[in-house]
């Protein structure tokens, strides 16, 4: 049985999860990569995005479904991702920890 307790996520995992939430039902590799780059300036390879997505899926923090296949993708389908309830709880856990850590640190105010 999979552990259904929320767990802390790494910083890149957090970025990917946030990008998925922002993109709603259009969250797939290219869009996630673009969203992260536009909002953080951090350029991530598709390899890094997909390895992270695979890890998140194994932890049951995201779920996936197949989208449409287009000609510009060489007839290949998109895999669309969404954040699960456990994923959302894990994000809140990590965000809460970060907020408590920086709370009162003057240099970061």
């Amino acid at each position: 049985m999979k552990d259904s307790k929320p767990k802390h996520v790494g910083d890149f995992e957090f970025l990917v999860l946030t990008a998925i939430l922002r993109l709603s039902d259009q969250a797939y590799g290219v869009a996630i990569s673009r969203e992260i780059e536009q909002r953080t300036g951090r350029s991530a390879s598709f390899g890094a995005i997909y390895t992270t997505l695979d890890r998140l899926k194994k932890k049951a923090l995201v779920s996936s479904r197949l989208g449409e296949a287009t000609q510009e993708r060489g007839g290949r389908s998109k895999t669309l991702y969404s954040v699960t309830k456990l994923g959302l709880e894990s994000m809140q856990l990590s965000l809460g920890a970060l907020r408590r850590m920086i709370d009162g640190v003057e240099a970061l105010q």
Partner: peptide, 11 residues
């Protein structure tokens, strides 16, 4: 992930 990733890259 082969199909999805190759599709993303081609796009």
């Amino acid at each position: 992930i082969r199909d999805s990733l190759l599709g993303d890259i081609e796009e």
